[in-house]
Write a protein that binds this DNA or RNA. Structure first.
Lengths: 209, 209
DNA sequence: TATCTTCTGTGATTCATTTCACAGTGAGAT
DNA sequence: ATCTCACTGTGAAATGAATCACAGAAGATA
């Protein structure tokens, strides 16, 4: 299994969520077009994605849901589990904690940080919060490779640099700021200002044919 | 100006933010490679994007920052302003309010909604909150075309349908749920669970050459 | 004025991603 | 036992997006 693209990974994550729902409804098998309709993509796309991760369906019964979830997990998840840090305990950061505290099989927020001492030293949603000065030590000792960044834009670049220096290799960036980091660090921007600009603009000019 | 892609719109939004910062530092002109470095893209990409919205730079001085901001605004913004609704006043929704209350020239959250009466009837961050039952009336009377959806996943599809029926044409969806809507509605997903899956997976396999 | 340099604007190309379309397959019907 | 139908797996084609690379422009320099 060579280089699987980010796009494909996103779709696999969508499929997994939908498959979990189907399994919960007692379904055991699913056709490519069934998954496709639920995920809002084409059936050919689903088949190609599944092919890419090396999993096969039965010609007449479709794909086995449980098996599929297993295959997707093999691709997406770190089998040892993936500890995640949350940096920035403002309104947004605190709002995200319970969001992620939800039942993901492997990802877990194990530490959070803030520069404001009033917000640290406690346990919020089962996750211990540390002062910013402890960042490097905790990240290193817990071997954290993935972080969520919810600090103010003005601090984002500096904090991101510290994270990278401490060993973090993937950052989910909520700050409205373009991060400049060494190329071994993967950054995914969740920039709401840009997203709103985009949908406002597209919605205005979008006219279905 | 024909069909400008979503990708390009996102970059234009990034450019605008950076240009604002440059203007604040007293810069009046910028080269394509200057903007490119700040935005993390190539100079050719910047030139092509700017070409696409019909704006020209001077061969030897580069682009005029103020003019550029104007051109980008002409493409991205609704000149009449764009009222936005926020639906769902849970932790996440409340955390987003101040985020967007920030100084966008045209976008403004003018109304928010929640099904819990305890959360409505007030004014939060300068934005009046209404009970869910008022949704259609307010959206129609305020002519709101863009909405941010921060309700629980289980309610997302239903609420999105109501929004579309009330006239909303663009939805920024924070719920971990694939929305099925008529094609005249533009949906942009801000799905944190998927994004985390993605960076965790990419960070693990990513090895710069 | 002539030359040099460094920029922009853009056709052509490359690269990435999605869709098409069909051969192959197997369960169920007859 | 064979036929039929609806599915999968996948090469090939189409589409979409980013990059290359260079002609042309204009300030700087002498």
């Amino acid at each position: 299994m060579k280089n699987i693209t980010g796009r494909t990974i996103e779709r696999l994550s969508v499929y997994r969520r939908l498959l979990g729902k189907l399994a919960g409804e007692g379904r055991g098998k699913v056709y490519s077009h069934g998954l496709a309709a639920a995920a809002g993509v084409t059936a050919a796309q689903v088949r190609r994605d599944l092919m890419e991760i090396g999993c096969s369906g039965n010609t007449k019964r479709g794909y086995d849901i449980e098996e599929l979830v297993g295959f997707i997990g093999d691709v997406l998840d770190n089998p040892a589990g993936e500890p995640v840090a949350l940096v920035g305990l403002g309104n947004l950061g605190r709002a995200l904690l319970p969001f992620f505290a939800s039942h993901h099989p492997k990802l877990k927020i194990v530490a959070s940080f803030d520069s404001d001492p009033a917000k640290t030293g406690r346990v919020i949603h089962g996750c211990r919060s540390y002062p910013a000065g402890e960042l490097r030590r905790v990240i290193e000792s817990e071997r954290i490779r993935v972080a969520i960044l919810t600090v103010p834009a003005a601090a984002a670049q500096e904090v991101a640099g510290e994270l990278a220096a401490a060993g973090v290799r993937g950052i989910l960036n909520f700050a409205p700021e373009t991060l400049r980091l060494p190329e071994e660090v993967v950054v995914e921007n969740m920039d709401m200002a840009i997203a709103l600009d985009k949908i406002a603009c597209l919605a205005r000019r979008h006219r279905p044919e």
